[in-house]
Design a protein around this nucleic acid. Sequence first.
DNA 1: GGCTTGATGAAGTAGATGCTTAAATACTCC
DNA 2: GGAGTATTTAAGCATCTACTTCATCAAGCC
Lengths: 102, 102
Amino acid sequence: MNHQALAAIASDRRREILRLLWQTERSAGDLASEFEISWPAISQHLGILKVAGLVRERRDGRHRLYTANPETVGPLKAVLTSMWEADLDRLASHAEAEERGK
Amino acid sequence: MNHQALAAIASDRRREILRLLWQTERSAGDLASEFEISWPAISQHLGILKVAGLVRERRDGRHRLYTANPETVGPLKAVLTSMWEADLDRLASHAEAEERGK
DNA sequence: GGCTTGATGAAGTAGATGCTTAAATACTCC
DNA sequence: GGAGTATTTAAGCATCTACTTCATCAAGCC
């Protein structure tokens, strides 16, 4: 565990990315299509996660495939899992509020 | 565990504060004397830690005494301990570098 | 080679963060 | 109640962060 890893998972966006990459390997573009922000933004987050050692990159033709690194993410699993649940709750209540606000 | 807690411990300074408060109860001023930054800066960090639920405040006369909240810090203990070690290592190597640089 | 697709790099910007100093509040003691 | 001490609040500033758009690079296809 290092500072960069902690800073990396302190960001909502990067936790979302990490959650997807924990489940399955994905290309940067595939990943970007899940979010409403630009490709370069995703690319920047991936760079931060990579420097922190939380994700691994593998090249396959013109794709770069990313996965969560079990070695480094493993020890954080408990924290991340509880955060992911909190994220989902938060998203749900946000959606409800939007609904009410209409 | 909530977002605020994670953001709170992502800061080097706040982890240092939390480390001191994990060991013993301290007043804000006592705490401030351990650092080279101003009292208000410490107060602001304490406010963030308090909102995150990581520290508790108790008033005693004209002092306000702070402690780490075992309920919320407990689950983070593993992460924090490893970070505290990393912090100490980092400080040590920083000091060495300073020494060499003279 | 030249075009297309997948992805990163570079430069700029708005908003958040960490600090500062100065002013205000809360409590005690006389 | 007035003075002094402990601490927070307010306002302002510099730096950092997350994002944007535009430019560039790398690999495969014809």
